[in-house]
Design a protein around this nucleic acid. Structure first.
Length: 916
RNA sequence: GGUUCCUUAGCUCAGUUGGCUAGAGCGCACGAUUCACAUUCGUGAGGUCACAGGUUCAAGCCCUGUAGGAACCACCA
């Protein structure tokens, strides 16, 4: 036998993945058709999904693990459904992230970025990435991602750059991109600007200081104005003081001049709505070059902008000898001390306020004046909102659409310039000779040249690169190879699956860009997963030391166990805890399935050796392996022989195995597998992964193994065992690809690979027979439970079963005896004795001595009470005339039936009680 | 300040247009074991569905409010 006694994933996973890849199973072809040849008899439904590109030179984290589990399950499900499925893998150059890592390495070697040109740095980072590359791709394979590797898109691939340039050019021509000098979010450590969305805000405790600015023309009543500020060091850049025009206190000073402390400058007092009379002293210093609000005030009042902080975060020479070169914090201290000395510091109040930080190094972001490229997002956002409100994209969870629209409505212009060398160069050149007339900037893609010449005029390139979100907003377009003159059959994508945390940064931008470039939304549905938290619901972080590495779990428990574990109990958009326990339970399922298969293969092997069958003719209908005591086949129902089914009458697969159903359990499992199949189909269309896994788990374990396979220890129906096992293997395959393929390859009767086999068809069965098995299950459960309950009073003894006038049990004595594990089963021969089994409502008794029954009395009484309480509830409902009148008739009838049933049950139990 | 979400068993979570006795995994208790599986099998305990109102024949689910928690957005000097 090929099956070892337990499933060891390490023995299979690598080889299986390699075999899939070598056989071209991940390519977007119609499953079952020859490679590259499209079967024209089938309508070719497409299914496309692209991977959010992991960092090309990084390692996968737990979030990637979840992403792959979700996306690959979808892909494999649709592939099995016969759709031409394409899962496009990607790798991200991760502009800023990678640059930070590289710069650190550079510094370790004792160098700085300033020793090299942009082109040199770019080449060096390229080499750096090349050396590190490949880990994450191996890890994706280990997770079982069935993505089309030949289509892997790297975010710096030629076609990506070409597409980004073409969009940028279009925007430039459309006037949607402009060069502007604005206040940008600048990280003085990393020496680059960021988009608003890349800045994290933290609530911090700080101080609000009151500083007196002396009036130039002091009057008797008023000699100074006191301003409130959290940033005294910026006062060197003040160009005005603002008060609210409605503020009575300051009406008379509007238009007057004040002396700026610590300097000789004089600045005006202006009236502006920005000043809030309720806040601080109601007067605010205006520093247009260092505060976004003040920048706006400055524009309204035509104030000069004086920059006093450099890009290095140090005070500039224009602040005076004493301050120049100081850091902002040092300068703040000195300014406060000096103001104090001069008696100008009038107050200090502790406050909590939001401070912007670099999301990477946590440095406080300095708003600094800088010329950058900005995208006018107004039109883009407007169009996106229209399409979203038009319901062209379905969101999972739904509420995220509202959140997204809300964000788009307040979207500001987008700074796409980054002062880092690692990225796609901005294809803009500035005229060198400032004197020359005409357009100052030109679009040109010759970015490898520092200087170009057009019509005898020299232009010098912009040294900046694009924000990576600008290029990645093209992801669905570039991954599907969409072109203006040749739209891709895979665009729009069927679904975009990614983290809810990048809804704004990425999803929003893909939608805007997709619409701008192609006129169509880039995907039909969005599935957003939440954060994977640690077992205690805390965010994973290196500093907390609670990071779980998916690869550790894969090597410990197997890839399938990880996938099943991470999907379990998870729903769209929610940040949810994750613990190793769920992976352990996935591992157990894999092992269970392995052993089910091992057992079934054993039966088949045995039969072959007994009957001398070869694999070629085991498909013939096998007669019921007659059990002497099994006379339960209803000859009317089954006619002269057994019902012969192919798994679907209009089956498109002529090779589909035929099977018979010869007894209740067999009809029942067909029904249960059909139900499982329906539920999974439904769940997958609604992205309820956890529920799909749950249903598979209970179907395979609680139904297939515990009841059907058990019953097959008596009735061996090999044709049905084969069909049903294939069916559960295929249904589980999207979630647990390796173990299902490993089993498929080990079974003697399966063909090809499971990865591109067919989704199971509906199994035919007899409904009455299936329902009868449900009754047998109830009977068996009651026998087991009663025997356990009796064991309390009878010291672990087990009692035999007696049946009276009960054809169901009479016809299935062997099965009942086996499943309920009773030592004996016999007819009462008209004289019942022992303990009556009341729940199932059959004429059944456990052959229990009178004294044991007496000891059981208390439990019986408790049961009667408990059923009585249920009955009371039902009766109360029926006593309510409004219920009978208004509730659906069907529901009322159900209630009536339930009452009758409970009453019958109680009367049976009471009879039993009296008999004791 | 704004938006959104969460509160259900000891823990982590399901619960799809309101409808029978609210489910799962793990954990816990008791019991089983000659050959598919101890990564097993059987049985069971455990919930005033955060709180208070409302709508309804009927509310874990819908509405209003309260309390606690989380995420995201935001220029508050």
């Amino acid at each position: 036998m090929k099956f070892a006694s337990s499933y060891e994933p390490q023995n299979f996973e690598t080889d299986i993945y390699a075999a899939w890849e070598a056989a071209g199973k991940f390519l977007p072809v119609i499953p079952g058709s020859e490679m590259g040849v499209e079967g024209d008899e089938k309508c070719s439904k497409h299914y496309s999904i692209v991977m959010p590109p992991p960092n090309a030179n990084g390692n996968l984290h737990i979030g990637h693990g979840l992403t792959v589990a979700l996306e690959d399950s979808l892909t494999r499900f649709h592939r099995l459904r016969g759709e031409k499925s394409w899962y496009v893998p990607g790798a991200d150059h991760a502009g800023f992230e990678t640059w930070v890592v590289y710069e650190k390495a550079l510094e370790k070697e004792g160098h700085t970025r300033f020793e090299y040109s942009r082109d040199e740095l770019y080449a060096r980072v390229w080499d750096f990435v090349e050396q590190q590359r490949g880990n994450m791709e191996l890890q994706l394979r280990a997770l079982g991602a069935s993505c089309s590797w030949q289509d892997l898109t790297f975010t710096l691939d030629e076609n990506v750059v070409r597409r980004v340039y073409s969009t940028f050019e279009k925007m430039w021509k459309d006037g949607m991109v402009y060069r502007g000098e604005k206040l940008v979010n600048f990280c003085t450590k990393h020496q680059t600007a960021f988009a608003d969305i890349e800045v994290t805000h933290k609530d911090e405790s700080g101080c609000l200081w009151d500083i007196a600015y002396q009036l130039v023309d002091a009057t008797d009543s008023l000699s100074e104005i006191i301003v409130s500020t959290t940033r005294p060091e910026t006062l060197f850049g003040d160009t005005a003081v603002a008060v609210n025009p409605e503020d009575e206190r300051y009406k008379d000073v509007i238009g007057k001049m004040v002396k700026l402390p610590l300097t000789n400058r004089e600045i005006p007092i202006v009236a502006d709505e920005h000043a809030d009379p309720e806040y601080g002293t109601g007067a605010v210093k205006i520093t247009p070059a260092h505060d976004p609000d003040d920048f706006e005030v400055g524009n309204r009042h035509d104030l000069p902008r004086i920059t006093v902080i450099g890009y290095d975060g140090k005070m500039l020479p224009n602040t005076g000898e004493e301050y120049a070169g100081l850091s902002t914090t040092e300068c703040r201290k000195k300014v406060l001390a000096d103001l104090e000395k001069q008696g100008l510091l009038r107050g200090e109040k502790k406050i909590t306020h939001a401070v912007s930080h670099c999301y990477k190094c946590d440095t406080v972001i300095e708003p600094l004046l800088k010329e950058q490229w900005f995208i006018d997002t107004e039109k883009l956002a407007k169009v996106a909102i229209e399409h979203l409100e038009n319901d062209e994209i379905k969101f999972h969870p739904e509420n995220k659409k509202k959140v997204l629209i809300n964000y788009l409505k307040g979207l500001k212009d987008w700074n796409i310039s980054r002062q880092i060398p690692w990225g796609i160069a901005i294809p803009m050149f500035k005229k060198v000779d400032a004197e020359a007339p005409g357009e100052e900037w030109v679009f040109d893609t010759r970015v490898n040249l520092a200087e170009i010449e057009i019509g005898g005029v020299k232009y010098r390139r912009d040294e900046d690169t694009f924000d990576t979100w600008f290029s990645s907003s093209h992801w669905p377009i570039v991954c599907t190879n969409w072109e203006e003159n040749m739209p891709s059959e895979f665009y729009p994508l069927n679904v975009m699956e990614t983290g809810a945390d990048i809804l704004f940064a990425w999803v929003a931008r893909m939608i805007m860009m997709g619409l701008y470039v192609t006129g169509e939304v880039p995907f039909k549905e969005v599935y957003l997963h939440g954060l994977v938290l640690d077992a205690h619901g805390k965010k994973m972080s290196k500093s907390k030391g609670n990071v779980i590495n998916p690869m550790d779990l894969v090597s410990k428990y197997g890839s399938d166990a990880f996938r099943l574990g991470i999907l379990r109990g998870r729903s769209a958009g929610m940040n949810q805890a994750f613990s190793e326990n769920s992976v352990v339970s996935g591992q157990k399922l894999c092992n269970k399935l392995w052993n089910i298969s091992r057992f079934i293969q054993g039966i088949i092997d045995e039969e072959i050796s007994e009957k001398g069958f070869s694999y070629a003719n085991v498909d013939v209908v096998l007669e019921n392996e007659g059990q002497a005591g099994v006379s339960g086949l209803d000859s009317d129902r089954y006619g002269e022989g057994s019902a012969i089914h192919s798994s679907e009458s209009d089956s498109i697969n002529p090779g589909q195995m035929q099977y018979t159903t010869n007894n209740m359990g067999e009809d029942w499992i067909c029904r249960e597998l059909n139900r499982c199949r329906e539920t999974i189909t439904q769940c997958m269309s609604e992205y309820r992964f956890a529920e799909a896994v749950e249903v598979l788990y209970s179907t395979i374990w609680d139904k297939y193994a515990d009841w059907f396979v058990e019953s097959q220890k008596i009735y061996k129906n090999t044709s049905l065992l084969k069909v049903t096992l294939e069916s559960i293997l295929v249904m589980l395959h999207p979630f647990a690809p390796f173990v299902t393929e490993a089993i498929w390859q080990n079974l003697s009767f399966t063909d090809g690979m499971i990865i591109d086999s067919e989704w199971p068809s509906v199994l035919e069965y007899d409904e009455i027979s299936a329902e009868n098995f449900e009754r047998i299950r109830a009977v068996v459960s009651e026998i087991r439970a009663t025997n356990v309950a009796l064991s309390n009073v009878a010291k672990g003894k087990k009692f035999g079963l007696l049946y009276g006038d009960d054809s169901l049990v009479d016809d299935n004595t062997l099965l009942v005896k086996f499943l309920s594990r009773v030592p004996s089963i016999a007819s009462t021969n008209g004289s019942p004795r022992g303990l009556r089994l009341a729940l199932a409502g059959h004429d059944l008794y456990l052959d229990v001595p009178a004294e044991v029954v007496a000891a059981y009395r208390a439990e019986l009484e408790e049961k009667i009470l408990s059923v009585g309480r249920e009955l009371d509830g039902l009766n109360a409902r029926m006593m309510n005339p409004a219920y009978v009148e208004r509730a659906p008739a069907e529901l009322v009838k159900e209630t009536r039936d339930a009452i009758a049933e409970k009453e019958g049950l109680i009367s049976r139990m009471k009879q039993q009680l009296e008999a004791i």
